[in-house]
Structure formats: C-alpha cells, structure tokens
Amino acid sequence: MSQNPTASPVWLRMQAARAFLRQLLGHIGARLGLLGLACFLVVAAVPDALVGPLETATTATGDFLLPPETSHLLGTDEIGRDVLNLVVHGARVSLTIALLATALSLIVGATIGIMSGYYGGAVDVWLMRLSDFFFVLPPFVLALVITPIVLEVVGNGGNILGFRASLFVVVLVIGLTSWAFVARIVRSQTLSLRERQFVERAKVVGTSDLGIMVHHLLPNLVPQIAANGALVVAGAIYTETALSFLGLGDPLQPSWGTLLSLAQRAGAASTGAWWYLGAPGICVLAVSLSFVAVGNALDDTLNPRRRVIR
C-alpha cells in the first residue's frame, strides 16, 4: 500500500511554511517593512546600474552645495559630487556592514545561548556573567572604544570581497559587542526545549551533546533567532552610522554615516544644505524602521500572546 504523500514530514513542513508566510504577509507591518527592504536591497545590489560608478559622482562644472535640480536630483556636496550617487553607493556599504555584523552577532549569541541553556550549572553561570558585561555596557560605547584601537593595529590597507579591510574591522567590532541580547533570548528558549521529550529520546539513543544542540535544539530556535535578528540589524545600522559620523568609517567607500559626517563638517546645517544631511539621514531612518517592522511582525506571528486579532 502506497504511503499517503500528505502525511510525509516534508509535505507537512511545506504546509506549515505556507501557513506561516500567509500569516506573516497578512501583517501590515511585514508588508511595509519587506517592501522597504526590497527597495534598499535592490539599490545596494546594483548601484552602478542605477547611478553609474562612484567615480562619476564628481561634477564637471564644480557646482558646490548645489540644491536639487534636474541634473542633480539630490544636489551636490561641498566638493561638487552628486549626492544621489553617493547615497546610492552608501547603501551598499551601510547594508553590507550591518548584515555581516548582525550575522556574526547572531552566531555568537545563539552559540552562547544554546550552550548556556543546555548545559546549565557552572557553564550557564559563567556564560551569563560574560553576557551581563556586554548587556550592561551599550554596544556603541564598547565599539567606540575598541574600533580605533583595532584600526590602529590592523590598519586600513588591503581588500576583502571588494571592500577595504577597515570596514570589516567595524563589522567585527559591532558583531562582537551586540550579541548579549540574542544570547539571553536563546538561553530562555533552550531552558524550555531541553526538557522536551524529543531531547530525552535523543539522549537515550546516544546522540552527542553537539548533535542535540545542532540537530534538535537549533531548528526549533531559528524562528526566534530570525525575529530578533531583524531587530539587531536596526541597531547595527545605527551603530555603524554613529561610528562613521565620528570619523571611524572609510572615506574612500562612504557609508551613510560617513556622508552625514562630511555634511556636518561642511556646515550643511548652517548653510541650509538640507539635501546633504537629509538624504542619508532619511535612508538610515527608513531602512531601520523597515527592519524593526519586519522583526515586530515576525514576533507577532511566532508569539501567540502578541498576536492582534484583525
């Protein structure tokens, strides 16, 4: 007798995934957030196709702090570069730093959280005391102290994946200083999951601790990690922007924070060059709100206590 395909684990997972996507896309915040993120990701993926290479940003006429017009939709900066070109290319730098730093933060936080919750005892105590240190001190303060020291040791030379090495120093600093919140969330979920029957069965059949954490606990934690990851990205963007604004970015590959720093130094606020400050500032705000909206929608969808009847 042939097996009913609708009873297979793969089919059940596919049905659960479809139901989850339908519920997520039914959330107005998710729709708006995903639309905003899609626009920014397209801009970051193909900046040259949209506005040309970064080198073409310099105007031939030398119009400095020119307000928006037909030839320069977002005006020019203090040395005559096209602000639209700079902002579009800045999207790639800012989003690359934020996404890589978030990925590193989630890996570190999830690893420490799972180990702490699964082993308990002295391991839990020591790992949580370590997370308390990073949790109490704001990530930006730690990043502000550590980044110039690391940059001095490593230097700005060399390229990694087409980006200067100094940008990846910022990625490492942000990622390694912002994992504590994720570790706390993952630990609390792991404390509940480790008492479930499927974990006890895995122990009975001789599955190693590493196998239980990777193959049994982690898949059940992915939704919570993803929901919190969307919120971590927003924090990473703000941290990168603040660091670049304070001069710790790379002026040769300007991010939105670097553009805000250059605008401030050029006196854009006092001279009325609102487009120079406004364009990168609005981008930082818009992409951060998009990630927060998606993160809140994921949390509402995954957490029945937060679901709102619509």
Rank of each mutant, 00 (worst) to 15 (best):
A297R: 02
A143G: 15
M1G: 08
L193M: 09
T102F: 05
A297M: 03
V308E: 15
A98I: 01
Y238E: 13
V171E: 00
W274T: 07
L106K: 09
E78Y: 08
L144M: 14
R265T: 07
R194W: 06
L260S: 02
F163N: 03
C39A: 15
V88H: 05
A263Y: 03
F64H: 05
L144S: 08
L218Q: 10
G272K: 14
P251I: 04
A279S: 15
Y118M: 06
T6N: 14
S178L: 01
M115G: 07
A165D: 01
P254N: 08
C39T: 14
L24S: 03
V199A: 07
V186S: 03
V93A: 00
F198T: 07
S94T: 15
L246M: 11
F291W: 11
P251F: 02
S290K: 07
A30L: 07
L99P: 02
W275N: 00
V153R: 14
V88Q: 04
F245D: 00
S94V: 04
L65T: 01
V171R: 00
G52D: 06
G175L: 03
G120C: 05
A269Q: 12
A57F: 07
L172N: 00
A44S: 13
V150H: 00
T177E: 05
A183L: 11
T271R: 15
L130V: 14
T207R: 11
N303D: 15
P68I: 05
P219L: 12
